[in-house]
Amino acid sequence: MTRQIRLSKSGKNVLTETDPNEFIFHSAYNTFKILASGTATFTIGSGLFTKTVAHGQSIIPLVFAFMICDTNEEVMLPGFQWFNTSPYDDLGFYQLYVDATNVIFYGRSFKATNTDIKFRYFIFESPL
C-alpha cells in the first residue's frame, strides 16, 4: 500500500475524501512551486516596446507576469491594451513570452515622454 500525507479541508474526512479540491495538501498531487519571482523596471519611450529579463532556468519554464500602471493604482494582466478613461489611456501590456533564456514583455506606450514601467514575474516549476 502506498502511504500518503493528506490534509483535508475543515469538515472533510481525510480518509475517505476523493475530490482533490477538498484537500489543503495531498502528497499524491504535485504542488505548483514558484521557482523564482522578481521585479523588472525599464524606461521606455513612446511606441512599442519589447523588454527582457533572464529567467536563469535550464528549461523553458512556465511564466506569468503583471505590469503596474504608471499611476501606481492598477496592476494589469498580459493582453491589456489601454484604459479608455483618462488618465489611464497611455500604457499597454500586450503580451508575455518566454524562450530558452528570457521572459519577454511586449507592449506599447502612448505617452510622448519617457516612462518607467515595472513588472512582477513568476517562474513556475513546470517546464512548458
Partner: peptide
C-alpha cells in the same frame, strides 16, 4: 529535481 517532489518548503506556492 523539484518536479519529483510533491512538496518542498524551499519553494513558495500560490
Amino acid at each position: 529535481d523539484s518536479d519529483n517532489l510533491a512538496y518542498s518548503s524551499a519553494y513558495n506556492t500560490l
